[in-house]
Amino acid sequence: MKKIFGILGLLIAVCLVTASLSDSFLSAYNVENVLRRSALFGILSIGVAFVIITGGIDLSLGSVVCLVGCALPWLLTVQHWPMPLALLTVAAVSLGIGLFHGLLVTKLRIQPFIVTLCGLLLYRGIARGFTADQTVGFGNEFKSLRLLATGKVPFLPGFDLPAPLLFLAVVAIVAAVFLNRTIFGRYLLALGRNPQAATYSGIPTQKMTILAYVVSSGLAGLGGVLFVLDVNSAQPVDFGSFYELYAIAAAVLGGCSLRGGEGSIVGVLVGAALMQVLRNMITLVTTRNNVEFAIIGAVILLGVVADELTRRVAANRRAAQALQGATAV
């Protein structure tokens, strides 16, 4: 919990600074926009958090976003598939990719970094292949489908909630309940802490690991669909580029340890929001978008360093208490 307060404080601080520097930050249009982007990235971040909790990593999700984001308009507008079939196909492809990763990681014991790095190259390459590098989009069609991402739900007078936020809410609640209230969530956390002891305790470690990769790619697929519906078209060369890094950064900022076994959904959500507010701040406050990566990199580094330092202080205090307790006995 303390961890979340730290990152939450950082989020609030960045919001306050941005609001004081730019009048348009708190405008209804901008808030909606930031919420929409945060929701989309939140979905991706929750997915990758599952893999990170098992001690793995998923570098491929930006390319899964690209593959799905290109495949959906391509199937609908170029191949003229019926909409339900096209949606089912992209869902099956993204879940299948997760299964494929999970099997390679568990059965063949290939390192997750390698498996998903190859995935990163592979899926974008496939997307560029079948689109022949051409931008694919919906044009003026499929307006009702696009409402899934562009729609608004009336909330306050003059302020509506963007539709992806509802998707995020459902995903986040299911994920949080799964992680904290089911035995499978406990299995995932335990497996991330010590895979060997998990095996000895009768935990189906391989199935749980595969599940994590399926969740990650599946949510990347959902994210890909919503992203492309939101922006209307996708260019295979750079659609979804670096999204995996935004998602991983959000998960780590939100308290997931890359060593595995740690992570909370609320933290990941705050992390994802922080990333988007930072990007928004750079757009609003500076005239130079090209420093975006430098600023984001510096803020994440600061957050992680601060977190590590507080953890050490806490560990020292705990050790001192334990020592006192022991000498008192």
Binding site: R186, A190, G261
Partner: peptide
Amino acid sequence: GLFLEMGVRENLSIATLHRDQRAGFL
């Protein structure tokens, strides 16, 4: 044998979670 960073409770119950589950819930 152990999940060192996890608590006594979580370590003690890990092998019986499956038996004591309620439809998948802890």
